[in-house]
């Protein structure tokens, strides 16, 4: 399949899933009624549900999935390691900590962008830390290959556990009696009952992240030849590093701040699409963004079909899909493939 056909197919898949997401929900209205209510305001409650609950939920799913898919593909391209994924290396957990601190100190209420920017700040600490440990372009660090992969994952486990523990601590210290029940949301992620307010606050920060990562795509292509070859081709490795760090932190940070930590998207999607794009990062990035959006939309439909009246967390679906892929990848790396 040509690259253009692949992107078109993925875009079509996203469109279908987007429509299905808008039509899925606990309020059992017919497809026809729902669509009529969506496009024509009859003053009834169904219009309100379609426009103020279903539509922002689907849009947020699209944005979150695209951010996570893109971030996963970019960081894997940079580290040349298929296990590098924002959730696994602790970026999502740290972003959640940043967002939780902002909400519970009251900072989030002071400015429109305070919440996604706090998510970004949390994510930034983790990305910088992980890249510092795992090395990567221009820094030496852990060797690429077996040791590198497992060093990266272990560092990620440590960062995740630390950030998760601090998140629990902050939520348990809150005088609000419901704060502690939020821990699940921050660990597993959910798009339930979000509004346009979350869409508009997250979008600017996410979009900045997308722009940075797309801007880095060409340099990532060169990096597939190795660091020295990339340098000789005129790639500024330290600038590339900074671009990736900021781009991943913005995309994942803003996503996590409004939807919680949704894991495995950035692992599964690039893995499935890598061979279809010939392993070239500049092609993998847009394909992963579309694939990530499709995966999150599909998972968000599934949680509403399985338990329509409860808020089943997205992380449950993601783990069902993600864990087998993760184990398969580990198996392949151990065999030295």
């Amino acid at each position: 399949m040509s690259n253009r056909a692949l992107l078109a197919a993925l875009a079509l898949l996203c469109a279908v899933l987007f429509a299905a997401s808008v039509l899925t929900g606990p309020a059992d209205a017919g497809i026809r009624d729902s669509l009529v209510a969506l496009f024509h305001d009859d003053g009834g409650p169904l219009t309100l549900v379609m426009r103020e609950i279903r539509l922002p939920r689907a849009v947020l799913g699209l944005m979150a999935g695209a951010s996570l898919g893109l971030a996963g593909a970019a960081i894997q391209g940079f580290l040349r390691n298929p296990l590098a994924e924002p959730g696994l290396i602790g970026v999502s957990a740290s972003a959640a900590l940043g967002a939780v601190l902002a909400i519970h100190t009251g900072l989030a209420a002071t400015a429109v962008l305070a919440l996604p920017l706090s998510g970004l700040a949390g994510a930034l600490v983790a990305v910088a830390l992980i890249l510092g440990i795992a090395g990567g372009a221009g820094q030496g660090g852990l060797e690429h290959g077996r040791g590198g992969s497992f060093g990266l994952i272990l560092a990620g486990v440590a960062v995740s556990a630390f950030a998760g523990a601090l998140t629990s601590l902050v939520l348990n210290l809150s005088p609000n009696p419901f704060a502690a029940s939020e821990i699940v949301f921050w660990l597993m992620g959910s798009l339930a009952d979000r509004s346009w307010a979350e869409v508009w606050t997250a979008l600017p920060v996410m979009a900045a992240g997308w722009a940075l990562l797309v801007f880095a795509a060409r340099d990532l292509d060169a990096l597939t030849l190795g660091e020295e070859a990339a340098s000789s081709l005129g790639v500024n490795l330290s600038r590339l590093r900074l671009t990736i760090v900021l781009g991943v932190a913005a995309a994942v940070g803003a996503t996590t701040a409004v939807a919680g930590a949704i894991g495995f998207v950035g692992l599964v999607v690039p893995h499935l699409l890598r061979s279809a794009v010939g392993g070239l990062p500049s092609r993998l990035l847009p394909a992963s963004a579309l694939g990530g959006a499709a995966l999150v939309l599909a998972a968000d439909i599934a949680v509403r079909l399985i338990l329509p009246e409860r808020d089943l967390k997205l992380g449950v679906m993601m783990a069902l899909v993600g864990t087998p892929v993760f184990l398969h990848l580990i198996h392949r790396i151990r065999r030295g493939a």
């Binding site: 519970h104 009251g106 609000n176 704060a179 949301f185």
Partner: peptide, 11 residues
């Protein structure tokens, strides 16, 4: 005290 759990009350 602010908490995300209250968001749905202010939707």
């Amino acid at each position: 005290a602010p908490a995300r759990a209250d968001d749905v009350v202010h939707h």
